[in-house]
C-alpha cells in the first residue's frame, strides 16, 4: 500500500496541479484573511467586528472556511482527471485490485489535503497575527485558541479534499464532477444557510460542520439571522468535528466501493 500511495503522490507532483493547489492555499488563507485584516473588518459594509475581538477572529476564520470548496474541487479534479485522460486504465492494469488503488488514492489525498490545510491555516494565522499586531495591537483570542482553531481548519480542509475525491470517484466525468462539487459547496450550502426553515440543516452539512469545528460560526450565524431568522443549528466544535469525520468515512466508503464493479468505457 505504501508504494501505491507513493505512486499517487508522484502523480500529483507530475503535473502543475500541485503548484495551482499551493497558490490557491496561499491566496485563500494568507491572501483573503490578509486582505480583510488590512482593510479592517470594521471598515467593511456592513461593518464586521474588529480584529481585536473574538468575533473578529471568527469572521476571518469564517471567510477562510468558506473557501474549503477549493480543496474539495481539487480532490474531484484529481480523480476525474484519471478518467478524463484514460490514465485510470493504466492504473487498473498495473493494480487490478481496484479497492487497493482507490484506498491508496484516498490516503494520498488525505496527505495532500492536510498539506493544503496546513498552508491555508498557516497563512490565515499569519494574516490574523500580523493584522492584529498592526491594527488593534491585541489578538482577539488567546494564542492557544487561535492555534487550536487553525489546526481544526487544516483538518477540515483535508476532509473536504476527501469528500471531493469521493464525488470524483462517484461521478467520473470531470466537468460534471467539478460542477457537483462547486454546486454543493459554493452554491447549495450557502443557499441552504439563508432559506428560512431549511437553514436548520445547514449545521449538519459539511460546511456547517466545518464551521462548527473551526469555531468560525459567527459569520454563518449572522448571515442566517439576517436572512432566515435565528434558527440555524450550530453544533458544538466536537460534534462538528465528529460529523465531518463521518463525512470523511462515508467518502472513503464511496471512493473505494463504487469503482469496484464498474466497467471502464
Amino acid at each position: 500500500m505504501t508504494s501505491l500511495v507513493r505512486a499517487e503522490l508522484q502523480r500529483f507532483f507530475a503535473t502543475r496541479i500541485w503548484l495551482i493547489a499551493l497558490a490557491a492555499a496561499v491566496v485563500c488563507g494568507f491572501g483573503l484573511a490578509g486582505l480583510v485584516a488590512v482593510i479592517g473588518p470594521e471598515n467593511s459594509q456592513p461593518p464586521l467586528p474588529p480584529l481585536g475581538t473574538p468575533e473578529g477572529v471568527s469572521v476571518l476564520l469564517g471567510l477562510v472556511q468558506i473557501t474549503l470548496f477549493v480543496p474539495a474541487t481539487l480532490g474531484t479534479f484529481a480523480v476525474t482527471s484519471e478518467y478524463r485522460h484514460g490514465t485510470i486504465g493504466t492504473t487498473f492494469l498495473q493494480v487490478p485490485q481496484r479497492g487497493r488503488v482507490m484506498a491508496a488514492k484516498f490516503l494520498a489525498h488525505a496527505i495532500i489535503g492536510a498539506a493544503y490545510g496546513i498552508v491555508l491555516a498557516l497563512g490565515a494565522g499569519l494574516a490574523i497575527v500580523l493584522g492584529s499586531a498592526l491594527g488593534p495591537g491585541t489578538l482577539g483570542v488567546p494564542a492557544a485558541d487561535l492555534v487550536s482553531s487553525l489546526v481544526r481548519l487544516a483538518a477540515a480542509a483535508a476532509i473536504h479534499t476527501l469528500i471531493g475525491v469521493a464525488i470524483g470517484a462517484l461521478v467520473r466525468n470531470q466537468v460534471a464532477g467539478i460542477a457537483v462539487t462547486l454546486g454543493w459547496f459554493y452554491l447549495l450550502e450557502p443557499v441552504v444557510m439563508i432559506i428560512p426553515g431549511v437553514n436548520l440543516v445547514y449545521g449538519i452539512l459539511p460546511g456547517g460542520a466545518a464551521a462548527a469545528l473551526t469555531r468560525s460560526t459567527w459569520l454563518s450565524q449572522v448571515i442566517a439571522e439576517q436572512t432566515a431568522g435565528p434558527t440555524a443549528l450550530v453544533l458544538a466544535p466536537w460534534a462538528g468535528g465528529l460529523l465531518l469525520l463521518g463525512y470523511a468515512v462515508a467518502a472513503a466508503a464511496v471512493s473505494v466501493a463504487v469503482p469496484l464493479r464498474r466497467d471502464l468505457a
Binding site: 508504494s3 501505491l4 507530475a14 502543475r16 485522460h85 486504465g89 493504466t90 492504473t91 498495473q94
Partner: peptide, 27 residues
Amino acid sequence: GAVLDLAAPHPAMTARRHLAIAAQLGG
C-alpha cells in the same frame, strides 16, 4: 503487458514520469 486505448498517459506528464508512476504502481 497490454496496449489498450483505455490505458493512456496523462498529456501533461513527461513520458519518463508516466513510466516511473506505472513502474511504481506495478512494483
